[in-house]
Design a protein around this nucleic acid. Structure first.
Length: 435
DNA sequence: GCGGTCAGCCAATCTTATGG
DNA sequence: CCATAAGATTGGCTGACCGC
């Protein structure tokens, strides 16, 4: 449904100025216009298809709570998808709308329904189709949904998220608020010649239009949303951090903002969001906005870790630079870190990492588990009771390293303590040598 | 009862997002 | 653009729980 601030009398940013998307254009069968979201278009056509033609008033009711339902209808008229019967000489709520091109017989809305069966009624005010008969399944009209495979075959589900990317000039930033497809959680990039800012918004179009991000001379604005609006705010936060990492690793522009917090995320969801990010990065590379100096393979794969997290591999058996500290937790787990400076701690390969994070832990504790499992930096231990680090990892403070290891703000057994003098004959030996 | 462990709460401080 | 709200980060503290 069109976001209520995007149009109508209360719209804060009229007139719409993003010409690239405010022109009435047909793209893959969809009208591209601020007044008509894909959902609006399908709702209008479905209402008409129920009886072959429908009065303007019925279609308006279907679109509730659209701020300018007549504007949406007129847009489809101007795009040539529907026609209106003006034989009475006036366009009002009784004027009947019909398709310009009638549906062929095999595209009947419900050809499988037996004669006389009750047809699903129109959508309710919240846009969800509900059947009249209680035992009738709800029909979900998904763009591009595959047909049911024949017996003996099965379709394998693919990652559910698919990026929609909008690009505009810096001067057009206010027009992003008018784009109905951007009235949802998403990620944005503000780019100048040499710098970039990566952010997220619950309503990403509005965030882009009204935000005051600390970057000057923005010449290109890019937004990335899910084409089916399948991301929530937490997903957008995770995607923001993934993109921040990818842009930073490409070293083509200087990032204005520091690493975003991300959000708590399961390894499975991280994987889906990273697949989405990969598709987005590939598209941005092909359209020559970013990642143009990377090979297509690298643009798709992305880096293993964020900039500065992964130091060069430590030679086998080499004792790390700095004072080595140990952290015991959970009765039988232990992590080791080398303090190279107060703001430079190296968590050593072989360290135990608790499987779970507590609710009060920061987002990074969960995010980094998912991200590093994804890239193979974390592995499940042989016992399956903890993760084990396979590479040294850099943290900016002792607290940050401990927070990640323990998955909570708990202090453990006194926090990091200097390692026992005879560590090389004890349990610490294999840990130090593990890298 | 005592001490160790740890989740969760709080406050200070800093950063970022949001609304007018 | 500016003022303010909201969120993140960090360190300190509290109290529940458990084993001895």
């Amino acid at each position: 449904m069109t976001y209520r601030l995007s149009s109508g009398a209360s719209a804060p940013s009229k007139p719409h100025s993003l010409s690239a998307i405010s022109a009435i254009a047909l793209d893959a069968g969809l009208v591209r216009h601020p007044l008509v979201s894909p959902t609006d278009q399908v709702l209008i056509l479905r209402t008409i298809d129920e009886t072959g033609s429908a009065p303007v008033g019925d279609v308006m009711a279907t679109l509730e709570p659209h701020d300018d339902p007549v504007g949406a209808i007129v847009t489809l008229l101007e795009a040539g998808l529907i026609t209106v019967d003006l034989s009475r000489g006036i366009f009002d709520e009784h004027a009947r709308l019909s398709r310009t091109t009638p549906l062929p017989p095999d595209e009947d809305p419900d050809p499988a329904a037996p004669a006389g069966a009750v047809q699903p009624k129109g959508p309710t005010s919240d846009g969800v189709a509900v059947p009249i008969a209680p035992d009738e399944p709800v029909r979900l009209d998904v763009v591009g949904a595959a047909s049911t495979p024949p017996a003996g075959l099965k379709s394998v589900p693919v990652s559910p998220l698919f990026p929609a990317i909008h690009v505009g000039a810096g001067e057009a930033r206010r027009a992003f608020a008018s784009c109905p497809d951007l009235a949802r959680p998403g990620v944005y990039l503000l780019m100048s010649d040499t710098r970039a800012y990566v952010g997220m918004g619950s309503v990403v179009g509005r965030r882009v239009a009204s935000g005051t991000q600390p970057i000057e001379d923005v010449d290109t604005i890019i937004t990335i949303t899910d084409i089916h609006d399948g991301m929530d705010d937490a997903d957008a936060g995770v995607l923001e951090r993934i993109l921040h990492m990818r842009v930073g690793a490409a070293r083509e522009v200087r990032l204005i903002n520091g690493t975003p917090a991300g959000a708590p995320v399961t390894p499975e969801r991280y994987r889906e969001l990273n697949v989405m990010a990969a598709l987005a990065c590939d598209a941005l590379a092909r359209d020559r906005h970013l990642f143009v100096n990377l090979s297509p393979r690298l643009a798709l794969a992305g880096p293993r870790a964020e900039k500065g997290q992964l130091p060069p591999p430590r030679p086998f058996n080499a004792v790390p630079e700095g004072e080595v500290m140990e952290l015991a937790f959970g009765r039988k787990f232990m992590a080791l870190a080398a303090r190279r400076a107060d703001d430079d701690w190296l968590l050593l390969a072989g360290s135990d990492i608790r499987l779970e994070t507590v609710v009060s832990a920061n987002a990074s504790a969960s995010y980094l588990r998912a991200a590093w499992l994804h890239s193979g930096i974390l592995e499940l231990s042989e016992s399956g009771e903890s993760y084990v680090l396979t590479r040294d990892l850099a943290f900016r403070s002792a607290g940050a390293a401990m927070h990640f290891v323990v998955g909570s703000k708990g202090q453990g057994r006194g926090g990091w303590r200097p390692i026992e003098p005879d560590f090389d004959s004890g349990a610490a030996g294999p840990v130090l040598a593990a890298a």
